[in-house]
């Protein structure tokens, strides 16, 4: 799978879960890997690009989670 497509899948997964369940990085790796038959390392690399671009961020509330940054 193309990395851009993978990034889109990850972003949508995080977006859909907002307000319902906080996702940990490992939740995302497991879910995307299982649903799309992609190796976890590829999902991790795509997630890292989203983080580096600031499209997703880590938050901390009694554990570390992946979320969409709040709009300024």
């Amino acid at each position: 799978m193309e990395k851009e497509e993978l990034k889109k899948i990850i972003y949508e997964l995080v977006e859909k879960s907002m307000g319902k369940k906080k996702l940990k990085q490992s939740d995302i790796l497991k879910k995307v890997s299982a649903d799309h038959g992609v190796d976890k390392s590829e999902v991790k690399a795509a997630l890292r690009e989203l983080m580096d671009a600031g499209e997703l961020i880590f938050t901390y509330f009694g554990g570390s989670f992946v979320e969409i940054p709040p709009k300024e």
Binding site: M51, D52, I57, F58, Y60, P69
Partner: peptide
Amino acid sequence: HGGIVGVRGYGAGVIG
């Protein structure tokens, strides 16, 4: 304690 705070690309190293 906690919240959304850090430097870009990192999820650790800064404690809000």
